[in-house]
Amino acid sequence: MKELLVEIKDLECKIGDQEILKGVNLKVNKGEVHAIMGPNGSGKSTLSSVLAGNDNYEITEGSISFLGEDITEMSPEERSWKGMFLAFQYPIEIPGVSNINFLRTALNERNKFFGDDPIPAKDFLKMVAEKSGLVGLDNRLKNRSVNEGFSGGEKKRNEIFQMAMLNPKLSILDETDSGLDIDALKTVANGVNKLKSAENATIVITHYQRLLDYIVPDFVHVLNDGKIIKSGDKNLALELEKKGYDWLTGNTTK
């Protein structure tokens, strides 16, 4: 029997007066990879932000549960401590704060939450060396300020590096493929695959099928106008690649 990791029920949300999600339902079990696809403006990135707890969006209906616990009202940091990770579409720059310091603070805050001791410097550095190899993150980037002056590819690698360090139960990859050339895409996908286990799950949000050649999904969902309008296996992605979204959305103006 598969263990349920996250369950989204009838989720509706808005930003300002604008409704974005209009009733999303989704179940993700441990060990699964789900892809969420959809045209621009369908609400994909909003869904990832809402899952991570960004309070710019107001949840008007429905709930999110994570490992059996209702997290709809939970703060973003607590979700993070409990194992949720969002790889941002546009990773944020934090001038003057080194990547290393940033990650150590993150790990120690989590340890504090669980009543554990801070991670010893030696272990931490060992872990950094091990995990950065996974995505081929240039050594000098680790000591630079978080994402500041990184190229698009470097930022995305850094996200996956952080994911490896924090070892989440649920990883949400928001358009991680955007702005990557094919080599960088392979490296990033390779990193994600290595982190995959029977204990964790991944939600891949993407516009194109390309990334799914490398991170093969168990399920593919199509999000349109704030709702999942079709679900299937990986073949659905291929079909979408061929036909586009219009045959599903009923938009025939093209």
Binding site: G53, P76, E77, S80, A106, L166
Partner: peptide
């Protein structure tokens, strides 16, 4: 920036 930190558990 704040949200990014929060998401990483800070």
């Amino acid at each position: 920036q704040l949200f990014y930190c929060l998401q990483r558990g800070i």
